[in-house]
Write a protein that binds this DNA or RNA. Structure first.
Length: 379
DNA sequence: AAATGCGACAACCGCATTATC
DNA sequence: CGATAATGCGGTTGTCGCATT
């Protein structure tokens, strides 16, 4: 069985593209388009390249209006927020950042943002084989039953958990005291991310973007149950609707309305049940004081922003952070139990258990709780 | 100056999904 | 309706260049 190769690997050139190849490809596509057939394209123009390689080169490098490097703070913030909410759906994230490619964002995340957020782990160990993502290494290092569970999680899931733990650590360190004990913490929520009076930049009508908002089923991914439930609930939302071009709908709740899917994801992304029950209004209400260029409502997004860009708050909250980078992960510091009371119950339960502190055995060995989070996070 | 470490980024690979026959 | 081809996506790898030892 096995799938036929997309091209004759023996006769195709691999490795970096030469300026001549770039020029050929660019000139042809600008004049004729892709013709809807990437596989045939290299033969047409006499390139010894795989069609997939041509497509990638065009989308990631040659396409007009591509931006490289110099991610702005806004862009960083969007990436972080979206990553926390939807995980490594780079194409979807890229669709929110015109001119950026999924590959670019992915690289930026892996090389910079992740480290910035999760912190560096001591002296790095040489060699790729040893370069486990910090998230994996850190969570795997937690004790007890968490180890096996952590192994079952994808690195993406672990990173997102860690980011939340970071936010929770920040939250409990300097935020909880200032809010009502009844008020649930405000987990990142895209509907506050994509603000009313800040329409998203126009999306380039490229094929990459167009497909980015399509419904895609990834059976290998453990789909967020909430998302599935909402999808079922939104019975009127047809697949055609999902496939529609993204449109902005400032009138309808002022949310970004990408024909459905992203919006669904956004609304569902990472909201605690308690927040869903009563915290949303508060989240939105306080949004006018956003410190980030009018983009985000106050809440974890601001904390995230501060975490990324403000050394002073991090210094206070994380006990010795320097230059906005916190070098000790909160899950290792394990915020005190009281501080997480009121947080998303399941998540708090899990973090409490995985931190191996707090009431012994209180929540450990509860596969249901863990599973809830696996379902939510494991992408 | 050479060796080593490391970050950044382009490109590749394999799999899932979608389209077509 | 199943088989096959094409496309899209995300994870991973290879390579280059700069920094450090």
């Amino acid at each position: 069985m096995g799938r036929a190769p997309c091209c004759d690997k023996a006769s195709v050139k691999k490795g970096p593209w030469s300026p001549e190849e770039d020029a050929k490809l660019k000139a042809y596509i600008e004049e004729n388009g892709t013709g809807g057939n990437w596989i045939a394209l290299p033969q047409k123009i006499g390139l010894k390249r795989c069609g997939k390689s041509c497509r990638l080169r065009w989308l990631n490098y040659l396409r007009p209006n591509i931006k490289h490097g110099d991610f702005t703070e806004e862009e960083e913030h969007i990436i972080c927020s979206l990553y926390i909410s939807i995980g490594s759906r780079w194409s979807i994230i890229a669709a929110q950042l015109p001119g950026r490619t999924d590959n670019d964002i992915k690289n930026y995340w892996n090389t910079k943002l992740k480290k910035k957020l999760l912190g560096k782990r001591g002296p790095s160990r040489r060699g790729r084989a040893n370069q486990e993502p910090a998230a994996c290494g850190t969570l795997a290092a937690t004790e007890g039953g968490a180890t096996a569970a952590a192994q079952a999680l994808s690195s993406s899931a672990l990173e997102r958990i860690q980011l939340h733990m970071r936010l929770q650590g920040l939250y409990s360190a300097f935020s909880c005291a200032s809010i009502s004990s009844n008020a649930p913490p405000q987990w990142p929520k895209l509907e506050t991310t994509l603000l009313p009076n800040r329409p998203l930049p126009a999306v380039q009508p490229t094929d990459a973007v167009a497909t980015a908002v399509r419904v895609q089923h990834h059976p290998q991914h453990l789909v967020d149950q909430t998302l599935a439930a909402a999808a079922a609930a939104a019975a009127t939302t047809t697949s055609e609707a999902f496939e529609a071009e993204p449109v902005l709908d400032p009138a309808a709740g002022a949310n970004y309305m990408p024909g459905g899917r992203l919006d669904q994801i956004a609304k569902l992304g990472f909201c605690s049940s308690s927040t869903e029950a009563g915290g949303v209004a508060g989240t939105v209400e306080s949004s006018s004081s956003s410190s980030l260029l009018g983009w985000f409502g106050y809440g974890p997004h601001d904390e995230l922003y501060d975490f990324l860009y403000s050394s002073s708050r991090c210094d206070q909250s994380a006990g010795g952070a320097q230059g906005g980078i916190v070098h000790h992960l909160p899950e290792l510091q394990c915020p005190d139990v009281g501080a997480v009371v009121g947080a998303d119950e399941k998540f708090s339960a899990w973090t409490t258990a995985s931190c191996d502190y707090g009431p012994a055995g209180q929540l450990q060995g509860n596969p249901v709780n863990m599973q809830d989070y696996v379902l939510g996070y494991d992408q």
